[in-house]
Write a protein that binds this DNA or RNA. Structure first.
Length: 737
DNA sequence: GAGTTTGAAACT
DNA sequence: CAGTTTCAAACTC
């Protein structure tokens, strides 16, 4: 089965993908098939496999030059008949990518796909990526001997991460253009030539190979999400012949609102949509280009291992290349650029209570936190897709805060995440659940920083709940950027202007939750609704608030404390019943004593659910047969209906008046008529009121009926006024004639 | 808007 | 685990 790595997706900048700096492959390894092993702390890059979807011809054209200083874009063009440099025959059937976290030793296997028998190899020497290289045992062994895990993608210099998708026996080699840049050299340093790859989502392989196993229920992409995705598909048309050259087509579906509900969208892997098959949108050829300077990372040789299984405080190393994802995840996630927070990208996880964001830290300088000079401004302009060529990109599973027990927040300071001056931070959510990894990540609380980037590290990760994303969107000035030394410039700003999830900024910034008014808790206790819901306070009325990124350390500590006290402190209190919402009930039950559970003091009542057996309430009246409850509900329903009717009536009346004005406007323009309001004389007004009062007297009860009759009568009055106005105009016209 | 009531959360 | 205190939201006036 041919699978394109979601990492390839990482090369798709757009608003979703920032330029990622993949490790620069040392040129000392001429063997293109050898796995580049990091001499130090390598973390194997988890690979993701996906079932291919597109069936159209695709041609990947890569200009491979050795040390060409000029930019050598790697292009994938449908127009070109040139083939992507593929080396078939080297691999046997590979479908499932198995990755191993060097830190945790956890293996990640994608399901629903063929087993990946061999790790893909990335060769810096010739800039080739062998996706499903089976015969790469030698390289694998070499990598192991070097103390590294296979499938390691080094951070320096590499621009393309591709998961093996090759059909059985067909290795796929993506030949990367020679970067010519060296580690330690900042590609961000104002090199206008630096250019991030221009594609986002790449799928290689035939669509027919998509298996339901890949996407459980969670894999279904909503139309809205689909609209947000720009999918780049690499379709393998003829997978049958292993020896035959593989042709790829890369299609880019942009904002395909026309996607039909039947549109099959492959799960997003590692926060990226791998495939999106839209019958509506014709495939668009896009060119994948890679600048020579993109691969340079300021932190050479270091990698930040983003291992969900590891405690970030101790185990997270600085590893540039991390992309952990499983293909067969039941959830797919969409990375959505935040409109107002440049360095945070939203990742939507359908069905998840939380959204996820990734913090993008663009490397501005090669080494010592040099403030990005004007040179970085080049990134601001141009295409939002091109973010930062030198940015470190990592995929980190981010999960809703559950328990923080396994997290060691101590070393996680706000500075690690926020105040990194050297780089921009990205927080990436893997598209797939990663069963092997996610269980541990479920212990992460919202706001948890996964990678503190010790020693001025480049990358930090923060687990941020969805609400925070909203808050970030709302807040033009985000603490994340404010406290950080790095300029919130470059492509980040460009991203900030991008619409979120197909909605305008205003639409996306609607805040469902009320602002808190905490005064003593510093918003770091569960008293605070914001905190309890995993939100950062934003536009609240609280005093001495610590529930923000500026106090991330305190916040993390508070989260830890809460979770120690109650591991499920951040879980929804209202559990969903097995049989639907009717079975919703409070997880702990209420303890009301005086409210009868019929006021909003009661959490059950507030959630519009009835008390259950687990409640410890006294004098509970919030049960099915309770007459008090029925009365309350009836009153509440009646009030709601009334409000709705009133609203509708007002709308209708307003519409009528507007229509009236519109119709009478020609009279004004004609110059011979009277202004419309002049017809509403005192007499007319009094007559109208009398009519309305008469209707009110007639109606008596109920009030709703009275209102209706009054409004109808008012409408009649208006019609008579209009009629009279029209008649007067006609008379006037006849007189003039 | 100020004061009171209430119950969850936090504390002992 | 139970009792008490703290806290902020809900509620009343």
């Amino acid at each position: 089965m041919d699978v394109v790595s979601p990492d390839l997706n990482s090369l798709l900048p757009d608003e979703i993908m920032d330029t990622e700096a993949i490790e620069d492959i040392p040129h000392s390894h001429p063997d293109s098939t050898s796995v580049q092993s990091e001499p130090n702390d390598d973390t194997p890059v988890p690979m993701e496999t996906d079932t291919p979807m597109a069936s159209e011809n695709l041609s990947l054209c890569s200009n491979v030059t050795s040390t060409e200083p000029t930019q050598l874009p790697m292009s994938i063009s449908t127009t070109s008949s040139s083939l992507l440099t593929l080396k078939p025959g080297m691999a046997t059937s590979i479908a499932t990518t198995k990755t191993t976290d060097s830190l945790t030793g956890t293996s990640i296997s994608t399901s629903g796909l063929q087993k990946l028998t061999a790790p893909f190899a990335i060769s810096a020497a010739n800039h080739q990526i062998i996706l499903n290289k089976v015969a790469s045992s030698q390289a694998t062994e070499a990598a192991k001997s070097a103390g590294t895990q296979p499938q390691v993608i080094k951070q320096e210099g590499q621009k393309l991460l591709v998961t093996a998708i090759g059909k059985s026996g067909q290795p796929i080699v993506l030949q990367l253009p020679h970067t010519g840049s060296k580690p330690g050299i900042s590609q961000m340093s104002g090199d206008p030539k630096s250019q991030a790859p221009q594609f986002k989502v790449v799928t290689i392989g035939g669509r027919s190979e998509l298996k339901p196993a890949m996407g459980s229920a969670g894999n279904q992409m909503t139309t809205l999400q689909a609209q947000q995705l720009k999918t780049l598909q690499i379709a393998k048309k003829t997978p049958t012949s292993s020896a035959a050259p593989i042709k790829f087509i890369i299609t880019k579906t942009v904002n395909s609102k026309g996607l039909s509900p039947q549109t099959t969208v492959s799960p997003v892997i590692a926060g990226r949509a791998l495939t999106q098959n839209s019958p509506v949108m014709p495939p668009r050829t896009i060119t994948l280009s890679e600048s020579l300077n993109t691969s340079i990372q300021s932190i050479s040789g270091k990698k930040i291992a983003i291992s969900p299984l590891k405690t970030p405080s101790k185990n997270i190393k600085q590893v540039q290349s991390v992309a952990v994802s499983g293909v067969a995840g039941s959830q797919f996630k969409t990375i959505i650029p935040l409109t107002s927070q440049p360095n945070v990208q939203q990742i939507q996880v359908p069905g998840s209570r939380f959204h996820y964001v990734r913090l993008v830290t663009a490397t501005t300088a090669s080494s010592a936190g040099q403030p990005s000079g004007p040179s970085t401004s080049s990134l601001q302009t141009a295409k939002p897709m091109v973010v930062s060529t030198g940015a470190v990109r990592m995929s980190v599973p981010i999960v809703p805060a559950q328990t923080i027990k396994q997290m060691a927040p101590k070393p996680l300071t706000s500075a690690a995440v926020v105040t990194t001056t050297q780089t921009q931070q990205r927080l990436i959510m893997p598209a797939t659940p990663l069963p092997q990894i996610q269980p541990n990540f479920t212990n992460l609380p919202p706001g948890t920083v996964l990678a503190p980037a010790p020693g001025g590290g480049n990358v930090g990760y923060a687990v941020v709940p969805a609400q925070y994303v909203t808050q970030l969107q709302q807040t033009p000035f985000v603490t994340l950027a404010s406290s950080s030394g790095f300029p919130a410039s470059t492509a980040i700003q460009t991203q900030a202007r991008l619409p979120l999830n197909g909605l305008s900024t205003a639409e996306a910034t609607s805040r469902p939750r009320k602002p808190c008014n905490c005064t003593k808790s510093q918003c770091l206790k569960l008293y605070c609704d914001c905190f309890a819901n995993g939100e950062f306070c934003n536009n609240c009325n609280c005093n001495n608030c610590f529930n923000n990124l500026e106090h991330e350390t305190e916040r993390l500590k508070a989260i830890k404390t809460c979770l120690e006290r109650n591991p499920e402190a951040f879980k929804p209190k209202i559990g969903k019943g097995k049989e639907g919402e009717s079975d919703r009930r409070h997880s702990k039950g209420c303890n009301c004593k005086r409210s009868g559970c019929l006021k909003n003091y009661c959490e059950c009542y507030e959630a519009k659910i009835m008390c259950s057996s687990i409640c410890k309430c006294v004098g509970c009246k919030n049960f099915e047969e309770s007459p008090e409850r029925k009365t309350l509900m009836h009153l509440a329903d009646a009030a709601e209906v009334r409000v709705q009717q009133q609203t509708a009536a007002k709308t209708k009346l307003s519409s009528q008046i507007s229509d009236l004005l519109m119709r009478t406007t020609p009279v004004i323009s004609s110059g011979g008529g009277r202004m419309p309001y002049t017809f509403v004389t005192k007499e007319v007004l009094e007559a109208t009121c009398e009519c309305l009062l008469e209707q009110a007297k007639k109606a008596e009860q109920p009030q709703v009926e009275a209102e209706r009759m009054i409004l109808e009568e008012f409408g009649h009055c208006l019609m008579r006024i209009i009629s009279s106005a029209g008649k007067a105009k006609a008379d006037c016209a006849s007189i003039n004639c």
